[in-house]
Measured scan of single mutants.
Amino acid sequence: MAAGGDHGSPDSYRSPLASRYASPEMCFVFSDRYKFRTWRQLWLWLAEAEQTLGLPITDEQIQEMKSNLENIDFKMAAEEEKRLRHDVMAHVHTFGHCCPKAAGIIHLGATSCYVGDNTDLIILRNALDLLLPKLARVISRLADFAKERASLPTLGFTHFQPAQLTTVGKRCCLWIQDLCMDLQNLKRVRDDLRFRGVKGTTGTQASFLQLFEGDDHKVEQLDKMVTEKAGFKRAFIITGQTYTRKVDIEVLSVLASLGASVHKICTDIRLLANLKEMEEPFEKQQIGSSAMPYKRNPMRSERCCSLARHLMTLVMDPLQTASVQWFERTLDDSANRRICLAEAFLTADTILNTLQNISEGLVVYPKVIERRIRQELPFMATENIIMAMVKAGGSRQDCHEKIRVLSQQAASVVKQEGGDNDLIERIQVDAYFSPIHSQLDHLLDPSSFTGRASQQVQRFLEEEVYPLLKPYESVMKVKAELCL
């Protein structure tokens, strides 16, 4: 049975990233139509530049190519590739079939990587351009969430054990800070992308030097003109047959890092959902379990974690691919890159769409948070109580021993009897502590235990987050809708 299948058929496997999760716009960027249309555009740009620099290419040939950029006979191309065992030459023939007058000058002087690699770089750039505003929107939604809850005390956790208090907004800023680093890295790697350009079979530009009869300047002009037509500021000066596969490492490393950030955020949300302090959106008709109707599973956060793990592992592909590119190139890269580049971007696209949807509907339960604080705060307040007693004339050592005994009794009630923490009640009825009984409410005010959390939130948002989001103001209103 021949390899390949009808990918629109229910009898043929289709990647869930495309069929179930990723956005239509990201799927289109990695589609065959987008790819092969870009090949034709690159052939047109090459012909236009070659004509401008004096090669015998007519206006009629150029116009014929322009008129057929979208006229792609995919069936013919597939048949040609089956016959020739070469995808680029299959599309040269297919393009030439609908451009008979231009057929002889299509791909003039070029090698397969002229269309293959340059198209990949265009796709990487455009895919990054799709991700950047999506990530900015996630940051914006979380920034709104953090600002609104900047002063809401909550129990902090280290080692997932109760620690000092923080605020809900401050905790959210930990998430935002990681995503801001990801946004900066995505922008950097996007701006650092260079075009492969017009380089020939081993990167020496020998074929173009021959076409222009040894004119170095025209060869350099050709490279520059096509690079500018493709919208790049610069091209690699040095290439082998391909652009260095280190570029793929750079791009997928940034995406993998984004995956790590999203995994951490969504894990926190899942843990908070278990504590009943916070939940992701839950639709009115949504079913959490087929057997347990009360369940409210954090399905979206779980999906993000599941896909983020996949995204983090994909960076190993370009690392290994770059390491086995012998001399000017081997074909070890080809099949692998067809999979890992598309999957990385479709996965990143999915987790950003999902995280935006989550961040637009996060639900906080202040009463649950308050109750958990009441359970733990008495123990945390013991040092403040000791200091207040010393100020009232008591002995630190005597007070410490009193607190120690009462704390152990209260802990026994919590752990052995399943009761509430009654340390404060014990202190309130103990005559030894009568000098500070009137101060206990103040000493137990949760806001006095959150330090500068709310001020940190305000400063972080104003100095770091809002300036970073400013270039994306025009796209901030787009909502994230999930079908599944």
Rank of each mutant, 00 (worst) to 15 (best):
E473A: 11
T111L: 00
E64S: 14
A18C: 14
L124E: 13
L469H: 02
L142Q: 04
A49M: 03
H159Y: 01
K75D: 14
F28E: 08
L211M: 14
L440G: 06
P378I: 07
Q177H: 13
F160G: 07
A206H: 11
L193F: 14
R329V: 03
D178V: 05
R404P: 03
R171V: 00
S257H: 06
Y466N: 11
S289V: 01
L423K: 03
N357L: 05
F232I: 05
L186S: 10
D332H: 01
T204C: 09
L179W: 05
S207Y: 04
S359Q: 08
M380E: 11
G116I: 05
N384I: 14
A273R: 01
H263I: 06
E425R: 14
P435C: 08
E383F: 03
G259K: 00
L130F: 11
V29S: 07
L272S: 10
Y466R: 14
D349S: 12
G214E: 12
I358M: 15
L482F: 15
E473I: 14
K284M: 14
E328T: 00
K246C: 03
H310E: 04
M292R: 02
H91W: 06
E417R: 11
V115H: 04
I358C: 15
E283D: 15
L319E: 01
S207N: 03
D333F: 00
D59K: 12
D117H: 03
E80R: 12
K82L: 15
V262Q: 05
P153H: 00
P56F: 08
Q458F: 12
V363L: 15
L307K: 10
Q356S: 11
E148I: 11
R372F: 03
L352V: 10
M389V: 08
Q285R: 14
I265D: 01
M299T: 09
D333Q: 01
R137G: 15
E250C: 12
L444K: 05
D268H: 09
H217Y: 15
S12T: 11
S151Y: 11
E462D: 12
C340E: 03
S290L: 02
R329C: 02
A230E: 04
Q61T: 09
D192T: 15
R396S: 04
N384A: 15
K295I: 01
A256T: 09
Q241L: 02
N384L: 11
D117Y: 00
V226R: 01
R40V: 00
D59S: 12
M299I: 13
S151W: 10
F433Y: 09
S301T: 12
R396V: 05
A256D: 05
Y365S: 09
N297R: 03
L53V: 15
F36C: 15
S261N: 01
E370D: 14
D216F: 08
Y365Q: 10
P446H: 14
E213G: 14
D216V: 09
L319M: 09
S306E: 00
R37N: 06
P133V: 15
A22M: 14
F212G: 06
Y294A: 02
P467G: 09
Y365L: 09
T38Q: 08
Q205I: 05
Q205N: 14
W43M: 07
S19P: 06
G104F: 09
M225A: 12
F379V: 03
A136W: 06
W45L: 07
I386M: 01
N68L: 07
S447E: 13
A388G: 09
E70L: 11
G288W: 03
H97D: 14
L461S: 04
H310N: 08
D420R: 04
L209G: 09
K66N: 10
D6H: 00
Q41S: 11
E81S: 02
E473K: 15
L482N: 07
R194T: 06
L341P: 06
R372S: 06
Q428M: 12
R374T: 07
P281A: 11
N118M: 00
L152V: 10
S454G: 13
V219A: 06
P435G: 08
Q286Y: 01
L252W: 04
S67M: 14
T204E: 02
Y466T: 15
L186D: 02
L314W: 06
Q177G: 14
G451D: 03
S359C: 10
K246Q: 03
L346R: 06
K402R: 14
K82F: 11
F379D: 03
K101A: 12
F379Q: 03
S454F: 14
I237Y: 12
M299A: 14
R329Q: 01
P133R: 15
D191F: 07
G104C: 14
E277P: 01
L193D: 02
K264S: 06
T201K: 02
L482T: 15
L121T: 10
L275P: 02
G418W: 04
V368D: 04
G259F: 00
I386R: 02
Y13W: 15
I358S: 12
R338K: 06
G240H: 08
C113Y: 00
M380D: 00
M181H: 11
A392R: 11
D32W: 07
E280A: 04
L443W: 03
A90G: 15
Q325N: 15
H7F: 12
E360W: 02
A103M: 13
V198Y: 05
A77T: 15
R452Y: 07
L183C: 10
A381L: 11
R33N: 05
R329G: 03
T201C: 04
M389E: 06
W39G: 05
E228M: 12
N71G: 11
L307D: 01
C305E: 01
T58P: 07
R37L: 15
L255M: 13
A308F: 03
L252Q: 07
R404N: 10
I57R: 01
Q397E: 07
F282Q: 08
Q375M: 10
Q161M: 01
F74A: 13
E417C: 10
K218S: 12
C266S: 10
F232N: 02
L53D: 00
V390K: 02
H86Y: 00
L84Q: 15
I105F: 11
C113R: 00
S323L: 03
L311F: 03
L423R: 02
Q375N: 06
L377S: 03
E70R: 14
E213C: 14
V92G: 09
D178P: 00
K391V: 08
A256L: 02
I62A: 05
A127D: 00
